[in-house]
């Protein structure tokens, strides 16, 4: 399969953008999903426990 330059450039400019939106929206949803909140809180605090050092 060979692509010419025009096609590749066009794919980059269109699907590239869609892909970017998906990654962005995806990571925001994941980070803000309510049920993840407690897990994140715990993770953030977990490193502060004494016995780590």
């Amino acid at each position: 399969m060979t692509f010419d330059h025009q096609t590749l450039a066009a794919i980059a400019k269109s699907y590239g953008l869609i892909y970017m939106m998906i990654v962005f929206v995806g990571s925001v949803i994941y980070a803000c999903w309510p049920s993840n909140q407690s897990k994140f809180d715990r993770a953030a605090k977990s490193i502060l426990r004494e016995d780590d050092e």
Partner: peptide, 15 residues
């Protein structure tokens, strides 16, 4: 102190 916003660290990671 725990990191200010764990959420933000995730979003910036993927960014």
């Amino acid at each position: 102190r725990p990191i200010f916003s764990y959420r933000l660290s995730i979003i910036s990671f993927w960014g």
